[in-house]
Write a protein that binds this DNA or RNA. Structure first.
Length: 283
DNA sequence: AGAACCACCTGGCAGC
DNA sequence: TGCTGCCAGGTGGTTC
């Protein structure tokens, strides 16, 4: 099975489920290990990697890992690594002697001869170091976790009052709700039967309930699908299997809706592709 | 404060 | 065949 699944796409698109999957796969491997240093090949990511990264992590013991939105937090006894995979980033555990590829920007060296290798062709990701990540300017303003107990229809209703932006743009605003990118925003709105263009503030409390449930359902299913491939991606490939799962509307322009048979439409919304079933999704 | 838009980056692909 | 140019995506920053 390892590395043998069909590659529908050569790129991953890390949203909350993938970050969760990456964390689950790495936590057991990294916790308790010591970092012996870092090799920095390309500092210019979304934010520059700290020049003194190697010095900061040398000798640090990994205490655990957390996720906040799409940010991955690695806690050590010397401080925290803050990692974002952007849209093409991946983390793999490799033998530290494995020669780096062109987009393998940095290695965190482990005390067992392996390296945690950060790869990111488009360099939208970042890797930072912080003594206090919860007050870090990238982390502190983040919104509610959609898989937390406090996220439900009422929370979504409260968040959306008075907002004139489309409900899809609201779902993707990480300062309000974290972890939902273009793919899962489209999928959640289809599942809830809501037109993505509807002004967020016009959603009824009842439909907020449907949408919150759909968001959680879509994200949980993706995590379950990704979890089954943890061993594979940690060892070799860096490509969780959930990405291969079928989407109901995303990327299916011109195909028929699996629910009613109507043709799925693609449109532009705020510079991004929106996909919807004009019959199943109502204003 | 909220909304709309831009910048960042590269691989992949359509179209000529 | 090879070139050009557009598109995909997340999100901080800028502007209005």
């Amino acid at each position: 099975m390892r590395g043998s699944w069909p590659h529908a796409s050569s790129t991953t698109m890390p949203e909350l489920p993938e970050v969760e999957t990456v964390m689950a796969g790495l936590a057991s491997e990294l916790t308790g290990r010591r970092l012996t240093g870092a090799r920095l090949r390309q500092r210019q990511l979304r934010w520059p990697v700290p020049r003194d990264l190697a010095a900061r992590v040398r000798g640090a013991q990994v205490l655990g890992m957390r996720r906040r939105g799409k940010y991955l937090l690695v806690q050590t006894d010397r401080g925290w690594l803050i990692v974002h995979l952007g849209m093409s980033g991946s983390l793999r555990l490799v033998p530290s002697v494995l020669p780096p590829g062109p987009h393998d920007h940095l290695d965190l060296l482990l005390d067992d001869g392996r390296a945690l290798r950060f790869t990111d062709p488009r360099r939208f990701g970042c890797l930072l170091f912080s003594d206090d990540p919860w007050n870090h300017p990238l982390i502190a303003p983040l919104g509610i976790e959609p898989l937390s107990e406090t996220f439900d229809g009422d929370a979504l209703y409260d968040l959306s009052r008075g907002r004139r932006v489309s409900i899809k743009d609201l779902l993707m605003n990480a300062h309000l709700i974290v972890g939902i990118g273009n793919i899962y925003a489209n999928e959640s709105l289809f599942e809830a039967g809501i037109d993505p263009r509807l002004a967020a503030g016009r959603l009824s409390r009842r439909r907020c309930g449907l949408l919150a449930a759909a968001v959680q359902s879509v994200l949980r299913r993706a995590i379950v699908a990704g979890g089954s491939s943890i061993r594979d991606f940690v060892g070799v490939d860096g490509r969780p299997g959930y990405f291969q799962q079928g989407h109901a509307v995303y990327g299916r322009d011109g195909e028929t809706c699996g629910s009613c048979g109507t043709l799925i439409r693609q449109m532009r919304q705020g510079g991004r592709s929106t996909y919807l079933c004009p019959h199943c999704q109502k204003r």
